[in-house]
Design a protein around this nucleic acid. Structure first.
Lengths: 144, 144
DNA sequence: AGCAAGAGTTGTATAAGCCAACTATCTGTT
DNA sequence: AACAGATAGTTGGCTTATACAACTCTTGCT
């Protein structure tokens, strides 16, 4: 059993390596939808619509970045804006039908890439790995 | 115990969330050394020197990108090049003394951020988590 | 009425990345 | 020995993602 520090070191290195590669491989497998766009669309689906400001806060992005990303997604007919009738400053963002379909398709491809990397893992290991990631990210979110 | 598909789904979602945040938070905590630069320097330390091509392959970067990154790191006196006497096409990259010191300092800050997120984990969980990440990344590398 | 705060957009600058074209070196085949 | 093809790295040109700052419009409070 490795010592605590070694494990922390490995976790740090491997998480970073993963982060480093994720964007590049996402760009390769899905030239039509960057990792950022994908996560924004996922968030919209998850929350059943939200404001640009919420996206910025959740992903630590500047609001101008989100504004431009959303504009691009709207141009691609993946997202639509609905002005909040109670507060005309606010635009609630929703997936379009096309957005839902595209997201589903990209998600499926991504899932199969993950599955490929996880072949040979038994169910117990998968569920423990998933649990560790959840635990880690929950702590990261709490501390950020 | 969750079903296999659920675990894969969770792993995908959580790894992606991590990747999405990593760059932003790295940029905030270490404006002096981007996540990319940091990982390149770490790799050099780890391997005790390597070629630009190896960096490109390992991180799925274009060789031109690595070339410019390395040039920048050299300008900052963090990295030096040594032409391979056996093959004059090759430049073996090494950390300079300043590079070693800078890396150590940034690594310490990063490590403490990771440790903060991993407080309360016992040693067995840490070492299992580390092993899972290694296994996952090895598969990702093999398949890319 | 007036003003501060919030939501979003736009101007500007920078960094990171890719592709393609190039040089220099090496290796294997004839 | 000579040439062809492969490999390492650099450079030019372009695109995209991002941040920061300045702006508009709306809202809510005094």
């Amino acid at each position: 059993m490795p010592h605590r520090d070694e494990s922390v070191e490995t976790i740090q290195r491997e998480m970073t390596a993963f982060a480093r590669r994720a964007r590049a491989s996402a760009a390769r497998t899905h030239p039509e939808l960057s990792l950022v766009s994908f996560t924004l669309l996922s968030h919209l689906e998850d929350r059943q619509g939200c404001r640009a400001t919420d996206l910025a806060a959740h992903y630590l992005l500047d609001k101008s970045t989100v504004s431009r990303q959303v504009a691009a997604l709207e141009r691609l007919d993946l997202v639509e804006r609905r002005v909040d009738p109670d507060d005309h400053r606010v635009q609630v963002l929703h997936l379009t039908a096309h957005g839902v379909a595209t997201l589903a398709q990209v998600a499926a491809t991504r899932r199969s890439a993950f599955e490929e990397r996880l072949t040979g893992w038994d169910e117990a290991d998968l569920s423990r790995f998933a649990a560790y990631l959840l635990r880690y990210n929950a702590a990261a979110e709490r501390l950020s």
